[in-house]
Simulated assay, not measured.
Amino acid sequence: MDISVVIPLYNEEESLPELTAWIKKVMDTNNFSYEIILVDDGSNDKSWEVIEKLKENYQEIRGIKFRRNYGKSAALNVGFATTHGDVVITMDADLQDSPDEIPELYRRIKDEKLDLISGWKKKRYDPLTKTIPTKLFNAATRKMSGIDNLHDFNCGLKAYRSAVVKNIEVYGEMHRYIPVIAKWAGFGKIEEQVVEHRARKYGTTKFGMSRFINGFLDLLSIFFVGKFGKRPMHFFGSMGVLSFFFGTIMAIWIIAEKLYHIARGTAYRDVTDQPLFYIALVAVIVGTQLFLTGFVAELVSRSSSNRNNYQIEVEI
């Protein structure tokens, strides 16, 4: 099969018939073999009834319905697990992503042998309350991930080589950082494509401002797990040793200063009267705790069933 189109959705009953008809037209025009996987993320409107009716008319459609709303990441993760296509396309169900972009995305994945193409909605129809925080997060993500060639990490329209979606796990609010997850998993051939952003035709956006806070926390999680997941001692231990070292140096300085004044018979302050003493004490305690945290994390990591789970690209 050429293409799997994975579409997570929540309360999108109005847009589904138009979207699926549009995708079918594009696929038939280009003679693609394809499947459309609609993942209903616990909708409370008639989205699932619409999917059931569409299934009767389109044999290419497959539907998955969650018992409750889990979030876009969960919908994508489940959808990825069921794909059969050589290239996987993800897009939103609100008609803001254009299926006309699919042929070019497919061609580039195949011809340029890319792992992932992320869409860039260069011209957007979103309000400033959404676009400004999005730009800030994209800038922070580029800085932390080292993926400098992407402008829009959270664009719903993306194309993947099948191996990518079969070897990554998406949860929480991680869907916005899939390129970062893919890079940490060893899929480094990541490019960008300018895509059309269409104004919302039906309903309202399903995302609130809380997604930015959750997204930032998830970015920190990805950064830590990706870089130190299999060697946590390198992170906690190094910070602990540095903190303990500086605390010890400050303590030695205080003691040496007291001994110096005693030897010369000059006045001096008690050790406990100096603010530096408490800073040194806190640094030593924090350093010890960080080191022990790294030690315990290392034990947990070595006891994990995934401790030797590595991505193998080719084996002959």
Rank of each mutant, 00 (worst) to 15 (best):
D86L: 14
P17D: 04
A93S: 12
F80L: 04
L299M: 15
C155F: 03
L95P: 08
V88Y: 00
P127E: 08
F153E: 00
T272G: 10
Y125T: 12
L136F: 06
D270T: 08
A139W: 06
H151M: 05
P179E: 06
W253R: 13
E104A: 13
R269D: 12
Q311T: 15
D92A: 05
E56L: 09
M250T: 06
F32C: 06
V39Y: 02
V282G: 14
L9I: 00
Q59I: 07
Y125Q: 10
E14G: 05
E257V: 11
V78L: 15
T293L: 15
R67P: 04
I178V: 12
R231C: 10
V165I: 06
D86S: 15
L19I: 07
E104T: 12
R200V: 10
T134S: 14
R67V: 09
L38G: 05
Y58L: 01
S305I: 14
I3H: 01
Y171Q: 11
S162D: 09
F212W: 01
N309L: 15
Q274R: 15
V296L: 13
E101K: 12
L259I: 11
R200S: 08
I279G: 15
T205W: 07
E56P: 02
K166T: 01
A263T: 02
F216G: 13
P99V: 06
I312Y: 13
P133G: 09
G215H: 01
R211D: 10
L105G: 02
I36S: 00
S238T: 14
F153C: 01
S15P: 09
L292T: 14
L16A: 05
L19C: 10
T141K: 01
L16I: 09
H197A: 11
V26P: 03
I254C: 13
G156N: 04
R62A: 07
L292D: 10
W184D: 10
N77P: 06
I64S: 09
I312C: 12
Y58F: 08
A140H: 01
R231F: 07
S4D: 04
R68T: 13
E298N: 15
K25I: 03
G119I: 07
G85K: 05
D28L: 14
K183I: 03
I181E: 01
N167V: 08
I117H: 06
V180I: 10
L38M: 00
G240A: 07
R67K: 14
L9S: 00
I37M: 04
V225S: 05
W184R: 14
I3L: 03
